[in-house]
Design a binder for these strands. Structure first.
Lengths: 333, 333
DNA sequence: ATGAAAGCGCTAACAG
DNA sequence: CTGTTAGCGCTTTCAT
């Protein structure tokens, strides 16, 4: 079917190896033949066969990514889609291909990874989720297979990762609210075992400490999952104790629930801040102030780190992606 | 690095080709050597190198998919994510790998496709969107490259596609509403040039015809895009003309807008039906009745068709995936 | 600066 | 039923 390097060689009156060198951008090729080869490539519309190249090189320029389907979160929160677009962007810029697999359980995740490695199909892997004591990380390290993880892992030793500074993000939210005069700020979080969650709560606590404001533990509520109904009930619970002037949530879905509880009961005067700046945040009434975590950029830099390692063996151990507080009506007090 | 077919051959005291045959499941191999080879594979933990196999076979078992990033729709509506999970499912079942690229413009879409083909990396391609007069389809047909499209294309000649029966889906919605006694049913649609949109509107019209109910063209509104605010205004416009007893929308986002307009103005007694059964539909107040289009299954069957063509050259020209009306509070009258 | 030749790991005639 | 051999298309020593 295809036109091969041999055809080009014949057309340009050189050997296949010369063509290969021209493509690789070798500098010890005379300008003249270089041009001749390039013309032939153009003329024949030649494109290297990446499979053949991969076999010869042991580099396929393929990066595998593994994504969770677990829970409905994948569908309600476009986090992973943003990550994927960022991944795709850097990949395209650097000539890499992206392969994906979904997993439901940790076993599936691990076997996806094994498959990528065993098949010799991928040069590197990106993990989009981390558990504490992640078996996959351990496996990849044992195999010495290049990988990067999105989200800071428990043990960062020898792992490339990219993440937001969740501590700082929440700290900044609180600082801002304090500046606006708030003193009683409730906290609604979920999945307290996750690093993200811990960091955000720490930010909340630390901001109080630094600003010399007491924390009322009663208005810190942690729920099971990032769900609107749980946010709704958390708010109800908080209000049964006392009325804060603001409430920060570790996810927009929780904040949506808060918002509808307040609306339903016609309660005014409580600022709300969400996290992740999901697309619906701006359509809430009132439009929800939220922390944008730059998910696309997380994906982008994940690939960048991986490619840097793969091609230049540069190991930037991690990147911190900035967050942005997007202020909307829900904090206009 | 890896253990190769030669190592296995040596271990089992056979030639590499025998090993290859065992792996391929050839039946003219004695049970005894078959066992010996399998043991050796097990013992050495051998996994075929799919790159080498691909080069030799001219079949990589890789399927490329191209996804639009255009508009915010990708992020608000999890359609594509569902499709991707379905794709992933069948791919995993049949031992295929999935590669993806995003595109913003038609040129990018086409160049993604060219890249898949030229690189010899993919065996087939799945298009997740179709335009009328789609250049990509034409290109793929010229190249005689295997592909399937999700969504019925303008010209279905020689193209494999999978889609819902959008005409029927809407027809059924209307029939149901008629059965419930509704006679004045407004229609809110968007992107009227798309096949989906045309089909859904046809279903609306045809149901009226068959049931012998007149259509009031004034309460058929077509807007630019699938956006909540546009649904909101469409409803406003309709109510300025007359009050229907029900309104059907070609997308949940439109229906969300309708719903909030009715809530804000405290208007009761209008049933609402959405389309696509997005995750938020069930959380609306009232919970939104919506047509589930089975996006995951669309993806699943897309891969199935492609693999059937690739491996057995069976060309099932298309699949129709059933839709399901999910009835919730918004039609409880 | 360029060519010849070997080899990446696997498959598929062709023999036997 | 099994081994030998010749590629698949490209890269990369090793010569010259």
């Amino acid at each position: 079917m295809g036109v091969t390097i041999k055809d080009v060689a014949k057309e340009a009156n050189v050997s296949p190896s010369t063509v290969s060198r021209v493509i690789a951008g070798s500098n010890r090729i005379s300008e003249e033949t270089k041009k001749r080869v390039k013309d032939a490539i153009e003329k024949l519309n030649y494109h290297p066969n990446v499979v053949a190249r991969g076999l010869s090189n042991k580099m396929t320029k393929v990066i595998g990514i593994v994504l969770p389907t677990e829970g409905e979160n994948l569908f309600k929160n476009p986090f992973f889609v943003y990550v994927m677009t960022g991944i795709s962007k850097y990949a395209q810029e650097s000539g890499y291909y992206i392969m994906y697999t979904f997993f439901k359980t940790e076993e599936e995740k691990l076997s996806s990874i094994k498959n990528y490695i065993n098949s010799n199909l991928a040069d590197g892997i990106i993990l989009t989720t981390v558990h504490s004591k992640d078996k996959c990380i351990k496996y990849l390290q044992e195999k010495e297979f290049p990988f990067v993880v999105i989200g800071r892992p428990e043990d960062t030793k020898n792992v490339l990762w990219v993440d937001n500074d969740n501590f700082q993000a929440m700290y900044n939210v609180l600082s801002k609210l304090f500046m606006k005069g708030h003193r009683e700020i409730a906290f609604i979080g979920a999945k307290s075992k996750l690093n993200v969650s811990k960091d955000r709560l720490s930010g909340y606590r630390q901001a109080h400490r630094i600003h010399g404001i007491d924390i009322d533990e009663n208005i810190i509520v942690e729920v099971e999952d990032f769900r609107e109904d749980l946010g709704y009930h958390a708010m109800k619970k908080i209000l049964s104790i006392r009325k804060p002037t603001a409430v920060v949530c570790t996810d927009d879905l929780l904040a949506f629930g808060v918002s509808s509880y307040l609306a339903e009961n016609n309660i005014k005067g409580i600022s709300i801040v969400g996290f992740n700046n999901t697309p619906l945040a701006q359509y809430q009434k009132p439009a929800l102030t939220s922390v944008d975590i730059n998910a696309k950029k997380l994906g982008y830099y994940a690939v960048k780190m991986l490619v840097d390692k793969l091609e230049r063996n540069i190991e930037n151990m991690h990147y911190i992606i900035e967050t942005n507080l997007i202020e909307r009506e829900s904090t206009r007090y």
